[in-house]
């Protein structure tokens, strides 16, 4: 009985996920989502990956990080360099994997010394680390072409790849958070002393959060470089880290669906007002201020909306006939 219900839920979810994929793929095919909107779509997907992975570090494990763009840049450069040498699909996949692994290694290195730091101090340390990464990329002329950046990176990323990575990363991080290991991370955010006293190796789980978060940010960066042809160190500066943090805080620290929602919302606002550049940034800032005044915990707080929302919606449209 319970099994059947679980299975039917699973089937429904898979159908919904496929449906979302197919609809957008169709919209792209008939050019309703034109090149310009497609760039927005890509930005949304990459921002979701970045925000969800930062949320794991900051929202769920409670480690304030201002260096997420640093991890992203490592994935971007690694993937770019590999695909430029090996402009094949295999090269692209290798690039993404290596980008993620390199970012995770750096995440580990960044995670270690920051363990003794908390709150603001940790934020400043992570900011410093990401600046160091940026400066290294700027000065490694022979490999990264310095401040001018890398141009003509082969494009392999399309909607299909993006969708696979976005859904995959969200699912993996969600599963992690619902395991004992994920609960250990959340316990650290809640009360580090109590978490240690209850047998949780807080050091290990803080570093682990950084590693997983950096790994996913590396993937985000790899996808970015493969879609936008061109990367340079300045793209991954302090402002980019803040951008990601804004999405996380806006959506709600500790809410994955909040990050998804906020990434979409901010991209839509900024695309919609593209033609009014004067008021666009003002509006963007205003929205943030208003939300922070009226909902300081973010759009969703630490709650999640799940696909069951769509379940209810589908029942409304009489999709779910025969379901109690």
């Amino acid at each position: 009985m319970v099994r059947d219900k679980l299975n039917s839920q699973l089937v429904k979810r898979i159908i919904l996920l496929l449906l979302a994929y197919v609809i957008i793929q169709l919209l792209i095919a008939v050019n309703i989502i034109n090149d310009y909107l497609q760039a927005t779509l890509v930005t949304i997907c990459i921002n979701i990956i970045l925000a969800v992975s930062l949320n794991l570090i900051t929202g769920f494990t409670g480690q304030f990080s201002l260096g997420h763009a640093g991890f992203m840049s490592i994935g971007a450069y690694t993937c770019a360099i590999i695909t430029m040498k090996m402009p094949t699909l295999g090269g692209f996949v290798l690039g993404v994997v290596m980008g993620a692994i390199m970012a995770a290694v750096v995440g580990f290195i960044v995670g270690l010394p920051t363990l003794r730091l908390r709150g603001d101090y940790l934020a400043i340390a992570t900011l410093g680390m990401s600046e160091i990464i940026r400066i290294v990329f700027t000065n490694l002329d022979s490999i990264t072409n310095g401040a001018a950046g890398l141009n003509g990176i082969p494009r392999f990323v399309n909607w299909t790849w993006l969708y696979i990575f976005v859904v995959g990363i969200i699912l993996l991080i969600r599963n992690f958070l619902k395991s004992s290991h994920g609960r250990a991370c959340i316990a650290i955010r809640e009360d580090e002393v109590a978490a240690e006293a209850m047998g949780i190796n807080t050091t290990k789980y803080k570093v682990l959060a950084f590693i997983i978060g950096a790994f996913c940010a590396g993937i985000g960066g790899a996808l970015y470089s493969s879609y936008f042809y061109y990367i340079k160190p300045d793209l991954f500066g302090f402002l980019k880290s803040v951008d990601i943090l804004v999405i996380v805080v806006l959506g709600g620290l500790g809410s994955i669906s909040g990050s998804v929602l906020a990434a979409i919302l901010l991209a839509v606002v900024s695309t919609y007002f593209q033609s009014f550049p004067e008021i666009r940034m003002i509006l963007y800032a205003l929205i943030l201020i208003i939300i922070m005044i009226f909902r300081p915990q973010g759009l969703l707080g630490s709650k999640e909306i799940s696909l069951s929302v769509f379940n209810r919606a589908s029942k409304f449209f009489a999709f779910g006939k025969g379901e109690k």
Partner: peptide, 11 residues
């Protein structure tokens, strides 16, 4: 959360 120390399944 407090049952964490006896968990055997991995990442």
């Amino acid at each position: 959360i407090a049952m964490h120390k006896n968990v055997k399944y991995g990442l």
